[in-house]
Design a binder for these strands. Structure first.
Lengths: 257, 257
DNA sequence: GTTGATTCTTTATGCCGTAAAGTATCGACC
DNA sequence: GGTCGATACTTTACGGCATAAAGAATCAAC
């Protein structure tokens, strides 16, 4: 069970995101915390517990109560907005175009893939109402810069940027959720699938006959890397191969006007 | 704020999903509810309130307390599993291949797009740990059946199925979340963007210069349909155009071995 | 008529985000 | 140097959530 945001008060979120922290001499006790420290703690907690982290947990990590955070941050939604943008700072702002756009887009996609693997909770933050923080801008700018080099018009590129983004997010989400579910129950992935399939086969032995085309898809497997869990093999294979198809589509768009 | 599931107890979810309801004569009061009625009520509530619906709300709609539901359903997670599979029954199980695979995939994608529009909470159910219900199987089977007709091997098709699925989900999610956020605050989309942009421009007037490639993407707009809100125009245009790119990629894969 | 299984309600527990009120600490001014 | 008021932080409290536990009402089978 997970919560998502991206819905903080626009003004306050954006001010916190873009305004440099102004330090003045003020009456009262010295601040023991800072927005930055809280955001860092929030990220650490969310990396461990997912988006269902609590304000109490973030406070505890800083040796404070949950309410202490409200001195610095208007609420949990705004904190998530800040955490979201902060993590994006990990990503490169620029990719080399020396070998053309295709390797650059591939690199961007793989960076995103690994990024979502490190911070799966980010996938729960709404895309529709973007936080509009500087680092999020930079990430999309990096992809846009690559794609503009294809010479395609902005009109075409918006759909392409969307498609790449959706694809990477979707692929990452699938594996992130699988990891989270496995981690939560302590079950390895194989066990989970095994338990599920066993019950299914017991209740519906004719499954392969009822869904023959799925059967076709599920066979024809390549030898898998035994050092990785079953699901990671599958996910990575599907990610690479799906991305290849998408890039072929872009190539076709570039080739014909 | 939204909750997602797909993590119910495997055995109990799958039994409920696949086992026909067995009716026996039993002591005790006659059941006033049924699993089916509860699932229907759950869907109705989730369609209105999103995944953050409460067991209380579902019970209330049936004239019962929240706890009454636990007689029929082990918990909220399992209920969501059932709701998820039930809604999928709305979708066609077969698409005509008379005009080839491309119009068929397009039809499948548009059906999914509209389906997610009707039931946006479905997008919050984990894909990684599929519920494995009969109707979910049927939906993927329908897509698989179309794609198998391309003659591509299962190995290639898995990535393609994933890519299409991720893309459609991602595109639908973006617009679903935007609608939800607008509905929650009562703000129309334009207002929301306006408020956000105004603050942003005030704090960072040089935005276009800092992110010039994004600026390129955002201009070059087609005339929009004034009967639709701004965001729906954009989302639908991006969906169609992104899907086209993806299908071009599949076409390329089909053309060369 | 009694027993025991079953449906449903009531009550209670322990989470959550956060509002409100209280306490301690300090800079600025008299 | 003493007071005032702003600030940092804690305590307490509220209404929400899923759901465990216990009790009340209902009915088939003996």
């Amino acid at each position: 069970m997970v919560v998502y945001a991206g819905q903080g008060d626009p003004r306050r979120s954006i001010e916190l995101l873009w305004r440099g922290s102004v330090v003045e001499s003020r009456p009262g006790p010295k601040p023991g915390l800072s927005v930055d420290a809280i955001v860092d703690a929030g990220i650490a907690v969310a990396d461990e517990q997912g988006m269902a982290f609590s304000m109490r947990a973030v406070g505890e990590r800083l040796g404070r109560t949950a309410m202490a955070l409200y001195t610095y941050v208007p609420g949990k939604n705004e904190l998530v907005d800040l955490m979201y943008d902060r993590t994006m700072a990990e990503l490169p702002g620029k990719y080399s175009l020396d070998d053309g756009w295709r390797p650059a887009v591939t690199a961007w996609a793989h960076d995103m893939w690994e990024f979502y693997g490190r911070h799966p909770w980010v996938l729960q933050v709404s895309q529709a109402r973007p936080v509009l923080g500087p680092h999020e801008f930079a990430v999309i700018e990096a992809l846009a810069a690559i794609l503009v080099s294809t010479g395609l018009p902005g009109r075409r590129l918006r759909g392409i940027v969307g498609a790449i983004n959706y694809f990477v997010r979707g692929a990452a989400q699938t594996i992130a959720e699988a990891r989270a579910a496995g981690g939560a129950t302590g079950e390895a992935d194989e066990e989970w699938w095994y338990a599920r399939s066993a019950v299914l086969m017991e209740l519906e032995p004719e499954l392969d006959k009822k869904f023959p085309m799925l059967h076709v898809l599920e066979n024809d497997r390549e030898p898998i890397d035994p050092s990785l869990p079953y699901l990671e093999n599958d996910a990575l294979e599907n990610f690479r191969s799906g991305l290849g198809v998408l890039l072929d589509g872009i190539e076709a768009a570039v080739a014909k006007p």
